[in-house]
């Protein structure tokens, strides 16, 4: 079992993004599997957990100590990726890599490592790249490049107000068909 923490973007930005996701999906038959999670900016990629209770407790402490964050979503980006043995891509919005976000990522890494075991995750560290994913796979890279060319102007330079922290969980007993879902949402400090 794995877990991840992420900042949720406000409803206005989510609505803008979802309108584009749906339009692309209908036109290019990509997939919308990742849309099962609300639009978010992950603070760290999923990490191993053995029990939910202590992680929930940590989440409560974390949310109560982090004030709302303003996110700058700068532009759409197509990131080539091998998905289910196909040369495909991830379509995401790049997020301005601020010192505050990097500090939050570093804090998570430190605190999780202190409290739990085996919490390292892919891309941990100073080069962690904050982003907001729209869709993954379902079509070859060439289609994603076409999508990018067509939609890059539709989503650019968005300011999102992140006032909630989300916890996602992943059941990886069947790694080929990992199931995952939104598990918990808490307001950030002072965001009630």
């Amino acid at each position: 079992m794995k877990a991840a923490f992420a900042l949720l973007v406000d409803a206005d930005v989510q609505n803008l993004v979802r309108a584009v996701v749906w339009e692309i999906h209908r036109k290019y038959r990509t997939n919308i599997d990742v849309a099962r999670l609300p639009q978010h900016v992950s603070l760290k990629q999923p990490f191993e957990i053995t029990a939910l209770g202590p992680v929930e407790q940590y989440m409560s402490e974390l949310a109560a100590s982090v004030p709302p964050v303003e996110l700058h979503l700068t532009h759409l980006e197509t990131v080539p990726a091998r998905i289910e043995n196909v040369d495909s891509a991830i379509l995401w919005m790049d997020v301005e890599q601020t010192a505050a976000l990097q500090a939050l990522h570093a804090r998570l890494n430190d605190e999780l490592a202190t409290r739990f075991v085996n919490t390292a995750a892919d891309y941990d560290g100073a080069t962690y790249h904050f982003h907001l994913t729209l869709m993954i796979g379902g079509q070859p890279l060439t289609i994603y490049q076409k999508i990018h060319a067509e939609y890059a102007h539709r989503l650019a330079d968005l300011r999102a107000d992140a006032r909630q922290l989300a916890m996602f969980i992943y059941d990886e007993r069947d790694s080929l068909n990992a199931t995952y879902m939104l598990y918990r949402i808490l307001p950030l400090a002072g965001a009630q």
Binding site: R18, A19, N31, R163, Q164, P187, A191
Partner: peptide
């Protein structure tokens, strides 16, 4: 069927620039 949340709006609507109430 593929399914997703397309849009979320607060009751009463929200004009441009008004605060998002989803956290409260």
């Amino acid at each position: 069927p593929d399914q997703m949340t397309y849009k979320v709006l607060p009751f009463g609507g929200r004009g441009p620039g008004e605060a998002d109430s989803s956290a409260s």
